[in-house]
Design a protein around this nucleic acid. Structure first.
Length: 486
RNA sequence: GGCGACAUAGCCAAGUGGUAAGGCAGAGGACUGCAAAUCCUUUAUUCCCCGGUUCGAAUCCGGGUGUCGCCUCCA
């Protein structure tokens, strides 16, 4: 497998620290608000990375933190008159609602800053003791000039950055680029005891402490958005390597931005869409499909029209899976096999194309193209099926269904039943609601069938149009009417 | 000012040296009572522009233009 490593700016062959195991840390949200679509991209992408490693048979350990101690949380809590930790906890719960809707698997651990003060303090102590950090009036700063590798993640030197950066005037710092590991407490802020007095951790140290605790040094993959490269990951790397004397991360992966009208979606520009706002208008499977339809390092422009266009493509995939289920229900002895021969011939090639795409730096866009290839092959074979399917053909169709299921295990687009063997669509069936409603719809469809037999097209069309207005689509097939929701 | 990324059809989008995947939209056809769904065919002599390297470049090199991002909280 090839991964583009931000550290070297090249694709590299993936070699894990331990054979057959992958250790992944992804920067999770600072929980002072609901997540927006830009926050959702890394969630969905790295969840897909994780799923692909599982698919490939790796033992995966996946950690995603919550930053629940932070300036923004404190400010927000002040505005609302709430307790900062209580507020953060509330948004953690809300985070899970959105992530679950997007079919993002729970991490093996979701560590919180507030629950890792001893580890954070120990790490800072180590940095003070080995001379990488210094203490000024109850705060501790990391001294960037002491760390030779500073700048290697973001690809710039300290002198580059000095040139134009808005310089922090904090007179406590020995170098403007030095950053806080520990901030002395200000009145009214949450604070913890430390060797330097009451205070709280700086922004970057928590990820170092938690990643090192759960994954150890030199772990395999660290992920996040491009905007975390500097300063967050630069600093995280510097302090971690300075503390342990060992490499921190083998592969740094960074996803591109979601944009709106070609501009980065961000809170400060006010051009963001909350995940829950979008989910109120579009199905979650479509949002996930849309996020994966572009390579993760490219920017992805969001608007309703693009999402809708993607939706029509996704519908083709769903239709194909539906058709396959129908075919599999028609298995019968005594039929002469042969309708699925071509499909059988293609399946292995499609599977390896998919894996090849994912092996090449997690190219989900290409992989989705391969899924469309499977869709076309399946549909072509399904077209030849009559009233029944021979067991030999059914076997081939089952293989195709298994392939859809495999692909979905990786992409995570459709929710599945508890056994993971059946994909649940948001919009199957028709006639939802009460039993009575379902029976009424059955009755209407039946009456329409009788009208068609009598070539009473006016009545048949009126019933079909009427049902469509109620959100129930009728499609006529040689074997009778098929119903679905749009 | 420093650093970096990107520029492929009406739209979205893969493709890093061998002659332009895929999806949406459009056109034609098959199927259908009509639809829908599905299938087939078709839609970029060409990949922002100009030079160069090469038998051969969307792909490499140089220059230009444009867009975006990071350098400050941000996924």
């Amino acid at each position: 497998m090839e991964l583009f490593n931000t550290l070297t700016r090249r694709k590299e062959t993936f070699q894990p620290r331990e054979r057959g195991k992958v250790r992944i840390y992804v920067c999770g949200p600072t929980t002072y608000n609901y997540i927006h679509l830009g926050n959702a991209r890394p969630l969905v992408f790295f969840d897909t990375v994780r799923r692909y490693f599982i698919y490939r048979g790796y033992d995966v350990r996946y950690i995603q933190n919550f930053t629940d101690v932070d300036d923004k949380i404190i400010n927000r809590a002040l505005e609302e008159g709430a307790d900062p930790l209580e507020l953060a906890g509330r948004y953690i719960n809300e985070y899970f609602k959105d992530a679950d809707a997007l079919n993002v698997l729970r991490a093996d651990r979701h560590p919180k800053v507030s629950e890792h003060m001893p580890e954070i303090i120990a790490l800072i102590e180590a940095l003070v003791q080995n001379g990488s950090a210094y203490v000024v009036e109850g705060s501790v700063y990391f001294e960037v000039r002491k760390f030779a590798g500073y700048g290697k993640i973001s690809g710039r030197t300290l002198d580059d950055m000095r040139a134009g950066a808005r310089v922090d005037v904090d007179p406590c710092k020995r170098d403007p680029m030095d950053f806080a590991l520990w901030k002395a407490a200000k009145p009214g802020e949450p604070a913890w005891d430390s060797p330097w007095g009451k205070g709280r951790p700086g922004w970057h140290i928590e990820c170092s402490a938690m990643a090192l605790k759960y994954l150890g040094p030199d772990f395999d993959i660290h992920g996040g958005g491009f905007d975390l490269i500097f300063p967050h990951h630069e600093n995280e790397n510097a302090q971690s390597e300075a503390a342990t004397g060992k490499p921190f991360v083998r592969y740094w992966l960074h996803n591109g931005f979601i944009t709106v009208k070609e501009e980065k979606m961000s809170k400060s520009l006010g051009n963001f869409f909350l995940v829950r706002e979008i989910l109120a208008r579009f199905p979650p499977e479509l949002v996930r499909f849309f996020l994966l339809s572009t390579h993760y390092r490219s920017p992805l422009d969001f608007d309703d029209q693009k999402l809708s266009a993607a939706g029509r493509g996704l519908e083709r995939i769903k239709t194909s899976i539906r058709l396959l289920s129908e075919v599999l229900a028609k298995e019968a002895d005594g039929r002469v096999p042969g309708v699925a021969g071509d499909l059988n011939f293609r399946i292995d090639g499609i599977k390896s194309s998919f894996e090849k795409a994912m092996d090449d730096d997690l190219n989900t866009a290409l992989a989705i193209g391969v899924i469309f290839e499977l869709t076309r092959e399946v549909n072509t074979a399904v077209k030849r099926v009559g009233a029944a399917v021979a067991p030999q053909d059914a076997e081939i169709f089952r293989k195709a269904m298994d392939l859809f299921i495999n692909f979905n295990e990786v992409m995570g687009i459709f929710k599945t039943d508890s056994g993971g063997k059946k994909m649940l669509f948001d919009s199957t069936g028709g006639g939802e609601g009460s039993d009575t409603v379902a029976k009424l719809v059955d009755l209407i469809v039946e009456v329409r069938g009788e009208a068609r037999k009598k070539k009473d097209w006016a009545t048949a069309d009126r019933l079909r149009d009427g049902l469509r207005e109620l959100g129930i689509i009728i499609e006529d097939t040689p074997q009778g009417a098929r119903r679905k929701k749009p």
